[in-house]
Write a protein that binds this DNA or RNA. Sequence first.
RNA 1: CGGGGCAUGGCGCAGUCUGGUAGCGCACCUGGUUUGGGACCAGGGGGUCGCAAGUUCGAAUCUUGCUGCCCCGACCA
Length: 451
Amino acid sequence: MKLSQYFLPVLKEAPREAEIASHQLMLRAGMVRQQSAGIYSWLPLGLNVMRKVEQVVREEQNRAGAIEVLMPTIQSADLWRESGRYDDYGREMLRIQDRHERDMLFGPTNEEMITDIFRAYVKSYKNLPLNLYHIQWKFRDEVRPRFGVMRGREFLMKDAYSFDIDEASSRAAYYRMFVSYLRTFDRLGVKAVPMRADTGPIGGDLSHEFLILADTGESEVFCHADTMKLPVPDRTVDYGDDALIAGIVDDWTRAYARTDEMHDEALWSAVPEGDRVNARGIEVGHIFHFGTKYSQPMGATVTGPDGKETPVFMGSYGIGPSRVVAALIEAGHDDDGIIWPDSVAPFDVGLINLRVGDQATDAACAALYEQMANAGLDPLYDDTDNRAGGKFALADLIGLPWQLIVGPRGLANGEVEIKKRASGERETLSMEAAINRLVAWREQVKERFGG
RNA sequence: CGGGGCAUGGCGCAGUCUGGUAGCGCACCUGGUUUGGGACCAGGGGGUCGCAAGUUCGAAUCUUGCUGCCCCGACCA
């Protein structure tokens, strides 16, 4: 992409309403625009990152055996009356009426709707296990939206729903999602720690939150240092092996790890002092096992091998890609701007032409741009006639992993400069060596984080 | 939902106390000189000061009501 043809409305100063780093940087980098309290438009750069986050989530859901569908944002109140949640959900649910004065709502979640789909088609245990998910906008009319897209009223959520014939296989489904979340956040380049959690209005008896540790997190977390050091299973993990998956979950849940709402001082004091990690975290994922809470009232039953009809056992599993984008920034930025994880950076490299209009420099940049594209790299070419300082500042702000800096001075020796955004390291080398370096990096990223 | 605060051009702000021609920086447009970490000179465009009512000869400024937004707390992907 050429910057001169892109839409990247950056701001030199952060709007006053933005308090935390991620919110300020998302506004400064032209990623989002607030339209109303807790409601945002996603501009090209922000959308680019969110799509990449979505894609990682999607790939890991698919790998774990979940199947993608797409349910609507607008739901009928009748479904929610069946589960009893129409009255329970309270003012967080945005209620609307259509022209026929039918009660509708903007979905805050989809347990009722997916249960309705399930009961309409699935009648036999032979079709289980089943896990359906979608990635769709949700609306929760938060009392106090804040921190930009971190806690918006409208937000994108991946929500998966598992259906099983009995408690044991339902737990196995829960564990598969647990492991899939470990892999998902690992690929997103962050450490997200699973913690015992409250089940809240979703209900149920087993629940974990996944939290990215960051100073501006909204939850206080308490966990054993060992939990931070556990290895994340690689892409070859066999989701068909229930014992293996349960073993991984066992490893990850053995040590103490809870948020403040589930915190237990007695258990905590048993953790050796040197191993206690007390930090703040951002909730980016939440999984629930709730058995027959919805299937029972809504009549979602299947016939078992014994010929008896039983309510199906369910769980639900959420990740908020829009919030993840903000959380990644909270976890990765410095005074100059954002530092994206390699796996979701909006572009691989910023190609910086220091002297637009200079024939040799323009020609070198054009050649590099083409070579990168041919090599499967995704560059953002700053071909504007801004001055060098402005271009460097922009590149640092939007946080691309690499900057490839091309100017007449280096070009006189046939050289360009390459800078790693995260470390600030720079190196001067030939054009060919620079491209090779980037291609090698790309391969590494694929190997480490790729699908 | 309780408490606090803000609203003046795209962004950041001054002006409000003490009523009298709406201003500054950045950004934007034109011309010129520049060009390796946010250039300089000259010229230019853009705001019925959140909305409504009131007080007044006169309101960004005073009064009342409303709306929007932000922050702190209790709740949530």
